[in-house]
């Protein structure tokens, strides 16, 4: 039997799922090159010298039961989340880090003051776990947008994760480490396996809930089907030529930041600046035990 060991640590899952959801019918792969002319593209430009990486982290501190008169208590999550930015222009520096605390719930609630800070009410559509998670995700996305817009302009803004919740960050590149969906028709998908390091696929247009230009890019050689492969996306509100230029710039710039296997459990897809930023943000979330204790004592009062 011949097999490959996935480079990601198992607790992080796998960068590529065994069964991808086929979404190729919503994809137009011929916006940059015709399907017949599809081939790996190597960038024709110098790497960007001033890159802003944006990322966020979140943590559920506690599950809450919110008392309601004459009703079964409502469910909510007390969560802490943060967003920050790293600017890489010669040196890498964390230039922003914002922390927020919130109560995510679909029921009526009031802010909770604790010794670690105030948990503001952040209402969600419902109180199912998915809705609550989505709420946290959205708020974090908002905060990421806020952090990004507070920064001086950079030649490239890379947001960790899909753009879906951060679409308001102007000209931002969504950087997607994991592949759950099959966007390319089978005929083109095979070309991913042979994509050389430092090259990208032509741009394809996806029109699901919103329109975006995407391309795949190989950061480095990795093991497994996704081996060092990532997908990038930008909003499809620009001419294809602009998107193409941006895609080249990204392809020229990012491989340098790919992490080494022994340094990151999600190597090489988790880029060094993002890994560093995540660690810094998690540190800023504060100690979870302390947060739980603060919430418990606030509940007793």
């Amino acid at each position: 039997m011949k097999f490959t060991v996935e480079s990601w640590a198992p607790e992080y899952g796998s960068p590529s799922e065994a069964d991808l959801i086929d979404s190729s019918e919503n994809v137009d792969p011929s916006v940059e090159l015709s399907v017949a002319a599809w081939r790996p593209l190597t960038p024709e430009c110098d790497p960007a010298e001033d890159i802003l990486f944006i990322d966020g982290v979140r943590r559920v501190d506690a599950n809450l039961w919110i008392d309601r008169s004459e009703q079964f208590p409502g469910f909510g999550l007390a969560a802490t989340f943060a967003a920050g930015a790293v600017r890489c222009n010669g040196g890498a520096k964390v230039v922003a880090a914002e922390v927020r605390r919130g109560i995510f719930t679909g029921v009526d609630a009031a802010p909770i003051e604790t010794s670690v800070g105030v948990y503001e009410v952040m209402s969600t559509r419902g109180s199912t776990p998915e809705e609550l998670w989505l709420g946290i995700q959205e708020r974090m996305g908002d905060l990421e947008g806020e952090v990004a817009s507070g920064q001086d302009e950079a030649s490239l803004v890379v947001v960790d994760g899909p753009l879906s919740h951060r679409r308001h960050v102007d000209r931002a590149i969504g950087y997607i480490k994991t592949q759950h969906v099959q966007y390319l028709p089978d005929a083109l998908r095979a070309s991913l396996a042979t994509l050389p390091v430092g090259a990208r696929t032509p741009i394809f247009l996806t029109t699901t809930s919103w329109s975006r230009f995407s391309w795949y890019l190989r950061l480095s050689n990795g093991s497994g089907p996704a081996g060092g492969l990532v997908r990038c996306e930008v909003k499809a509100d620009m001419p294809v030529a602009d998107a193409s230029r941006l895609a080249h710039l990204v392809t020229a710039s990012l491989p340098r930041f790919a992490s080494a296997r022994h340094k990151d459990p999600r190597a090489p897809q988790n880029l060094y600046p993002i890994g560093g930023l995540e660690r810094e943000l998690r540190r800023r979330l504060g100690d979870r035990e302390l947060a739980i204790r603060a919430l418990r004592s606030a509940a007793v009062l």
Partner: peptide, 20 residues
């Protein structure tokens, strides 16, 4: 602060990994 491996110093000096 922010470096976990000895070799991180090269990444930091290259401007790849943020550290203080």
């Amino acid at each position: 602060e922010g470096a976990r491996f000895d070799s991180d110093v090269f990444l930091i000096e290259d401007g790849v990994l943020p550290a203080e």
